[in-house]
Simulated scan of single mutants.
Amino acid sequence: MDSQVSNGSGLEAAHITDLLVFGFLQSSKYNFHQELEALSQELPVEVYLDADLEDELQTDGSRASRSFYQGRIEPDSESQEEVIQNIARRLAQVGDEMDHSIQPTLVRQLAAQFRNASLSEEDRRNCLAKALDEVKTAFPRDMENEKAMLIMTLLLARNVASHAPSLLPDVFRTTVNFINQNLFAYVRNLVRNGMD
C-alpha cells in the first residue's frame, strides 16, 4: 500500500483517512460536536469544523469563519485537504439516504461492544466488520461495492457515536484503521479523482 497520494500535498495514508472520517462525522446532524472538537485537537493533521456547524452569523447576515485547531485551510485553495473534506460531505449526503438501512439494535450492539474495555483494537475492527456484513444486504444494487462498504462503515461509526458520544475517539480510531486495512485503495482513488 502506498503511504502517500501522489497529487496535492502528499498526505500520508492514515492522515487522508483521518480527514475523510472526521469530515463525514462533522457533516452529521447528530449532537456530538463537542466530542468532535476534542477529537480534532488530537489529530496529527489540520482539521476544521464546517462553517455550517461553527461559524457565527454576523449582523450583516454573513458568516464569520472561525478556524480551529492546528491551522487554517484557506477556502479558496483546492488543497488535498479540501478535496477530502468535499468528498466526505458528498459521502455523508449519500449516507443520509442510506441511513434507514441500519437497524437501531445493530447500533446498540456495536456500541456495547465498543464499551467493552477488554476488547483489543483488532477485536473492535472485527466487530465493525461483522456489523458491516449484517448491513450488506441493504447496499444499493446500482452502487459499486467499495463505495457502499465505505459509506456503510462511516454510517455505522456515525450512528454509534450519536448513540454514545463518549465512544467517539474509539469509534473514530477503529473506523480509520478498518478503512486503511480494507478500503484504502478505493479512498486513494476517490482523492485522486476528486470523486466521480
Rank of each mutant, 00 (worst) to 15 (best):
I84V: 08
L25A: 00
D76N: 06
S40F: 02
R124P: 10
E82C: 02
K147D: 04
V45Y: 07
P140E: 05
A112C: 04
Y69Q: 04
D133A: 11
F68W: 14
L128I: 15
D99N: 13
A157Y: 11
R72F: 09
Y186Q: 04
S118N: 11
G194I: 02
E42C: 07
L36I: 08
D99P: 03
R124Q: 13
V160L: 04
H15T: 06
D52W: 11
L91A: 12
Y69E: 01
D99W: 11
A129I: 01
L91E: 04
M98C: 09
S67W: 14
L106A: 06
N126L: 15
D18G: 02
L20M: 03
M152P: 07
G95Y: 08
N86R: 15
D76K: 10
P169R: 01
H100F: 15
I16C: 14
L91G: 10
S3Q: 12
E37V: 13
G194D: 07
A129M: 11
L156V: 15
Q181D: 07
A161F: 03
F22D: 00
Y186T: 03
S101A: 15
L91S: 06
A161T: 14
G61H: 07
Q109W: 00
A112E: 06
R115F: 03
N180T: 10
L39K: 01
Q103R: 14
E122D: 12
D50C: 09
R188H: 10
A92G: 08
R124A: 09
E37G: 04
I87Y: 06
S3Y: 14
V45G: 02
N159M: 12
L39G: 00
E74V: 15
E12M: 15
V83Y: 05
Y186L: 05
Y48E: 10
A185Y: 08
T17Q: 04
F184V: 01
P75H: 08
K130L: 13
D2I: 15
I84P: 13
D196T: 10
L43V: 08
T174I: 07
D55S: 12
A111E: 01
E46C: 05
M1S: 12
A157I: 14
Q181A: 12
H15A: 06
S6C: 09
L110P: 09
E46D: 02
R72K: 11
P165N: 05
M1L: 13
S162M: 06
E74Y: 15
I102K: 02
K130N: 14
Q26P: 00
E12A: 14
R115H: 07
I179Q: 07
P44L: 09
N180I: 08
F178K: 02
V160T: 02
D50S: 12
L53C: 01
D2E: 14
T153D: 00
Q41R: 10
L167W: 06
N180R: 06
G61M: 09
N193Q: 08
L128G: 00
D196K: 13
L39S: 00
H33Q: 05
I102Y: 03
A64S: 09
D96M: 13
T59Q: 03
V171Q: 00
N159G: 01
L36Y: 02
